[in-house]
Design a binder for these strands. Structure first.
Lengths: 229, 229
DNA sequence: GCGCTTAGTGTGTTTCTGACACTTTCTGCT
DNA sequence: AGCAGAAAGTGTCAGAAACACACTAAGCGC
C-alpha cells in the first residue's frame, strides 16, 4: 500500500529517554537495534507516529511494545529535526523523557525479542542516530526540573526513606548534599507523610519510611506554593 | 508532482509566537489568513517545513517571508500533534517562540500582501487552529524563562533605561516590582553597562541609558553564575 | 516659580542558606 | 556480652539574600 501527497512529507517518530534509579545510580533504558540502520547498536526506544494517535500516545505505545513499561511519568522534551539525522529519509523525532519506578518494572529482559537493558548514565554505550545528543538534552532538563518540581518521587517506590531520596537527588544533580539541610528543607515543605513503618533487615539503624502526598502538593501549588530544592 | 511513501506521513509545520514590547504592553505578532481553513482569522505565522532545512531554519524562513522580521531571538517551544488540530490532514506543528526588538522592526504593515499586526497579549483576537493553546504555552514559558535567563533584553533596544527594563519585567511577569529592589538586584549582577547618555526631550528628569553586556554574562555563566530575578 | 512627572537613592527587619559533629540504633562478628 | 561498623537522626549559629518602605533630584510646561 502506498501513500501519496502533493508536497513532500517528512516521517515523524517519537523517541523516549527513560530514566530509572536503583539506590545508587541514575539509569537509562536502551534497546539494541535488530534492523538497519545502526543494526546492533544501542538506541532509545521509539518508533513512527501513527496518523490517528497523538504524540504522547505514540510514545506510550512504543514504550509498552518495546520494553513492557506501562506506568510512568512522561513529558515532552524537544523535537529534533536535522535533515540528515536519519540516513533513510527525513525523519523528525519528537523526543520524550520518562521517569519510572525501577521497583515496578523489574529487570524483565527482552519483551519483544528485542534486547532491552538499563545502563548507568555514566557508562552509556555508543548510541545510534543523534541519540547521544537527545540524552544530553534530557539529562540537562531532568537536572533543572528536579529542583523546582517534585518529579524525583516518580523514580522512587511509593514508600521510601529520606536517605534514598537524598541519594536520588545527589545522583541527578551530580553533587553531594548536606544531610541535615536536605532533611530540614524537604520536611519543611510538609509534602511528605511519615509512615509508621521502618526498614527491615538492614545492618544498621532502620530508617523510617515516607510517602509523597501528591494531593497536598497540588493544593499548595494552586495557592502559589513552589517546590524548590 | 506527487510524493509517495510506503507508510502514511503527517505534514510538519513550524509556527512562531513572536513577542514584542512597546514600553507598556507585551505584544504578539499575528497574521490574517488569506486561505482556508480559518480564512480571514488571525493566526500565528508559520508554514510547512521543507525537506532540506532544519526546523529552526524553517521558522526563520517563514517569519521572514510572512512578516519581514529578520533579527530575533528564537527558541523551540513545544510540538503540538493532536490528530485533529488541522481539518485538512494530520499536521504536526513544531512551535517556536521569538523575541524581537520592536524598535528594529517598526510597524511595517504587510510585507507579503498578507495582513500582519501586533496585538497586546491581553487583547488577542480569536485565533485559528489550536493557536490559542500555543500562545498560552508560550506565555507560560516566557514568564518562567525571563526570571532565570537574561532574555528580556531581546525585547528592548540596545540602549534602554532601567525604567524601561522594569516596565518590561512587570509586563511579562504581570506583577509590580519594587523600584529600589529591582535596581539593586539588576545592577548588582554587573551585567549592565551604564552609558554616558541620557534621555532627551522628556518632560521630567532624564534617565540614564544602559546596555546589556552579553560577553560578560557568558563569561560569568561559564563559571557557574546564574541570572535570577 | 509652581506643578507634574519620572529618576534615583539606603536602611533596617526578617527570612533563607549553608556550614558543621555527635548520638542512636541495629547487625554481625568474636 | 561487647565491640566494630554503618547509616539514621538531630540543632545552632553566622552570613547572605529578600523585602518593605519614602524622600530628594531633575527636567518640562504653563
Amino acid at each position: 500500500m502506498a501513500y501519496t501527497y502533493q508536497h513532500p512529507h517528512p516521517a515523524v517518530t517519537v523517541d523516549a529517554v527513560v530514566f530509572g534509579f536503583d539506590d545508587a545510580d541514575l539509569k537509562l533504558l536502551l534497546i539494541q537495534r535488530k534492523l538497519a540502520p545502526f543494526k546492533g547498536a544501542w538506541a532509545l526506544p521509539g518508533g513512527f507516529v501513527r496518523l490517528d494517535e497523538n504524540l504522547e500516545a505514540a510514545a506510550r505505545r512504543e514504550l509498552t511494545d518495546e520494553t513492557g513499561i506501562t506506568r510512568l511519568y512522561l513529558e515532552q522534551l524537544y523535537t529534533f529535526g536535522e535533515p540528515d539525522r536519519d540516513p533513510r529519509e527525513r525523519v523528525i523525532s519528537v523526543a520524550y523523557y520518562a521517569l519510572v519506578k525501577l521497583s515496578d518494572h523489574a529487570l524483565q529482559a527482552a519483551s519483544d525479542a528485542e534486547n532491552v537493558a538499563w545502563f548507568p548514565v555514566a557508562e552509556l554505550p555508543k548510541l545510534g542516530f543523534d541519540h547521544e545528543r537527545i540524552v544530553e538534552v534530557a539529562l540537562k532538563r531532568l537536572k533543572a526540573k528536579v529542583r523546582y518540581e517534585p518529579i524525583g518521587f516518580e523514580l522512587l517506590p511509593v514508600k521510601f526513606t529520606l536517605g534514598e531520596l537524598q541519594r536520588l537527588y545527589e545522583a541527578v544533580l551530580e553533587q553531594p548534599l548536606d544531610k541535615r539541610n536536605f532533611r530540614k528543607k524537604i520536611l519543611g515543605m510538609e509534602l511528605l507523610e511519615a509512615l509508621d513503618e521502618y526498614q527491615q533487615d538492614v545492618a544498621h539503624r532502620a530508617a523510617q519510611y515516607y510517602r509523597f502526598n501528591r494531593q497536598r502538593y497540588e493544593q499548595l501549588a494552586k495557592r502559589g506554593f513552589n517546590f524548590e530544592l
